[in-house]
Amino acid sequence: MKFAVIVFPGSNCDHDAHYAVTQVLGQQSALIWHKDTDLQGADVVILPGGFAHGDYLRTGAMARFSPIMREVQAFAERGGPVIGICNGFQILLEAGLLPGAMLRNRGLKYRCEHVHVRVETTDTPATAGAYKGQVLTIPIGHGEGNYYAPPDLLKRIEDNQQVVLRYTTADGRLDDDANPNGSVNAIASVCNDRRNVVGMMPHPERACEPALGGTDGLVILQSIVKALTTA
């Protein structure tokens, strides 16, 4: 199975995702420069974390104009799995591939720490190997992860069960103190209505090895492999 990890100028989790896919997951992965126009036959596309184009206007705002994004869009339209992590999530929102938008964290500060997220649906490539209600401990690292959708859109997202992960306590309860950034309905991850494009603020690639303090991120990455092999 072949992953494509897109490299934007300012991406900084591209090598982390590439490493997790190749060294931990044992799958193939290609780092693809944003000016390229070929996904090299990838089965799944990852938009990694970082600060594409410096995030100088809005997070993710400029990356969607990169040449490779036309290919990513076409790939998604064909039903191919696209996973956006952190800045990749923000890019997918700006590109209109996912519903909603990101605001600054309500505490106005960058936050890097382990959080607990509850799996809300297993009907996505990112959660196909998890079980509903499973609580995963995965790090976040962002200053703008305060997910927002206007009320009518939010209702549609909830009604369609497009919320993939929600911030909860360790035992899976919703609690405002467990919401690190003020996201509406504690949303940490959403998918599109076709369910093949998923964006998430937590960094699964940072939680794949015991030496780094946890392996819950592997549940997400292995889900992708499972979703593709059983599809």
């Binding site: 206007l57 809005r58 705002a61 400029m62 104009f65 700006e94 938008a101 927002y148 959708a149 206007p150």
Partner: peptide, 8 residues
């Protein structure tokens, strides 16, 4: 197209 995000 770029300067503003119409969602927010």
């Amino acid at each position: 197209k770029l300067l503003a995000n119409p969602v927010i």
